[in-house]
Amino acid sequence: ETWKFASEEAKNDVQDIYAQKFAEVIKKESEGDIKVRIYYYGQLGTENDIVELASNGTIQFVSVGAGHIGSYIPEIQALSLPYLLNADEEAVHEVLTNSKSIYNGLSPKFEAVNLKLLSMMSEGDMVWGANKPIHTPADFENVKIRTFTSAIPTETYKVFGATPTPLSWGEVYGALQLGTVDGMVNPIYFIYNAKWHEVQDYLIFPGQQPYISTVSASSKWFNNLSSEKQTMVNKAITAADKAAFDYQVRINSENMVKIREESPDLKVIVLNEEERGEFIELSKSLHDTYFDLVANTYPESEQTAARQNAQDIVNNLGREIKAAAKNLE
């Protein structure tokens, strides 16, 4: 038996490490009966493609950024809101692997697209790259920052005072080098892999949010598995969660060291509490953007309920992350 697991990232990126660990555990637990075949970035098409392939059962597991799942389940874009999950790595990990509001609250929505959300992971804090220092929203004026095309990231940088500029990632290196855009936002390990540090002068740590990705299974397929195999999957997920978390922490710090070695002139800024406060204040208005976005994907009669549901998700996530942070103290 062969199970197929596709991720949106390249070999040895965080999602791939996740898949590798998952495959290893399944192989061991099934005593070699079940093999997991791993696909990386581009091998089976775009992020949307692999989500749909899992949805129609061509592959069994899919790992993509939460933003991409947001094309099908708009509620999940709560995870894209800035300064909502801006806590300690461990606390974020705790919420992402156990959040009741996501796993229980959104499971019917996932079911509706024939997916079962198995886990979520952080791939490290998002960092801004720029060619000038940025401490306050005012510094963002006239800064063209490359973001993902989806609504929440675009609105986020608009609210922060920058010019959000969607670009496909193949064009980003050249665009940064020639000044078509001034900055971008991504986790450190990815910035290093894409070599974007070669074409930026500043890296700014805003303590804003992690890049969050999801792991889902094809739901009809999963529900028909024997309980034995389901247990196997859950066990592998738990092990992979841990492996990806450890790897993420390690690779982000290692790649930061490499960036400093390779680009000694690159300056690093960590926003202090006061500076962060300004951005936090601005991001509050984005909650409404999110509620509107969710509500607008429903027919008129269901919009009030959908909006309420979205509000609950944000409130619960906020509560969960606070509780997790407190537990860790």
Partner: peptide, 16 residues
């Protein structure tokens, strides 16, 4: 060159 940019990213190699 789009080919070199893509290769650089996939192979984790300096595009420059």
């Amino acid at each position: 060159s789009i080919a070199l940019i893509l290769f650089g990213t996939l192979a984790n190699t300096s595009v420059g």
